[in-house]
Simulated scan of single mutants.
Amino acid sequence: MTEYTDTSAGDRIGFDRYGSGPGVVFVAGAGPFRAQDATTTETARLAAEQGVQALVYDRLGRGDSPADGDLTLDRELAAIAAAIDEVGGSAVLVGHSSGCSIALAAADAGLPVTALALWEAPIGQFEGGAAGFEADFLRHLDAGDLDAAQREYMRDMPPEFLEGAMQDPSWPQIVLGSRSYRADARSLAWAEELPADERYARIAVPVLVMVGEHTFPGMTESAEALQAAIPSATFRVMPGAMHEWEAGPMATAIAQLAAQGG
């Protein structure tokens, strides 16, 4: 059953809660929300069976978290803070793709984060740098051309991703979702604005950096660079493919991290 909570920025987020124990909050990347993300839901349920309180919320502008105006990174961090409050005031953040850079920004901002689990963070993978990527994406988004914004956002992904998305009957709905990617683009640019060791200097909690056994070129290198830049980080190759994890092993890794970080 969907629950709701209000954020300090005046937004309302919808979420599902599973289990009890140390808090875990899942932070999606660009696109997914609860109704279409069965893997994250199953992971949260399995993690809850291992003694955590797992919360899966819809990012602003998606699913049960409708929001107007510019969906900034600050508003997204306020949503994460509200989600953390719902699980007892502190939590492990589980970031997926660009949700990793948002989770890192949340920890850097001083939110009560006990640990970070980061799955395939696309940090440092944009041709010409993430600042240029953000500027190009926002030029289309701010002009109201959501189709161009969506295509721009996917420009450095494997070409088959964009080709498949554009052929999907749900492409018009995918395009509408691009207005919720402002925080993703900002967090990815934020991650590159300082040298990595300086950028993550304030992150002292345990960090588990992960990639799937069958991942895309560059993902492992990005993960290894994160692990090298964050003294508290470890790197692990996990069961998974096509940018997705397998629910069972991921749930166990998250529950173990929550036990350490809590």
Rank of each mutant, 00 (worst) to 15 (best):
L176N: 11
A191W: 12
D197M: 11
H214I: 10
E192W: 10
A149D: 00
E198P: 03
R151H: 03
M210S: 14
L162E: 06
D145W: 02
M154I: 03
W171G: 06
A131T: 14
L188N: 13
R182C: 02
P169T: 10
L141W: 06
A149F: 02
D156I: 01
A131P: 00
Q125F: 00
R155E: 01
A143G: 13
F133G: 00
R179T: 08
I174K: 08
L176S: 11
M210L: 13
D147G: 01
Q173R: 09
G164D: 07
A191M: 09
R139F: 01
E193C: 12
L194T: 08
D168T: 08
L146F: 07
Q150K: 12
V211S: 04
R139Q: 10
R199N: 05
A135D: 06
A189S: 13
A148V: 05
R186G: 00
A183G: 07
I174Y: 13
R179F: 01
R139D: 11
R186L: 04
P195A: 07
D156N: 13
L188I: 13
S178F: 10
A143H: 08
M166N: 05
R179L: 08
F133T: 01
M154Y: 14
D156H: 09
F133Q: 09
V209I: 13
G129Q: 10
R155I: 05
L138I: 04
A148H: 01
A149S: 02
A196G: 05
P169N: 07
R151T: 02
E160P: 00
A149T: 01
A196Y: 15
G132V: 13
L194M: 13
Q167T: 14
D156L: 03
A191G: 02
A149I: 03
A149Q: 02
M154T: 06
F161V: 14
G164P: 00
A148P: 00
R202M: 05
A183K: 12
L138Q: 10
G132I: 13
H214W: 08
A149M: 04
D142W: 04
E198S: 14
E192Y: 09
L188T: 06
E127Y: 00
E160W: 12
E127M: 01
R199K: 15
A204V: 14
D197T: 15
D197K: 15
D184T: 10
A131G: 05
Q167V: 07
L146K: 11
H140R: 10
M166T: 12
I203N: 09
R182T: 14
A183F: 04
E193W: 08
V207R: 03
V205C: 15
G144N: 08
D184A: 10
E160I: 13
I203L: 09
I203K: 04
R139C: 02
P169V: 11
V175H: 08
G132C: 06
G144M: 02
A135S: 12
F126D: 07
D136Q: 11
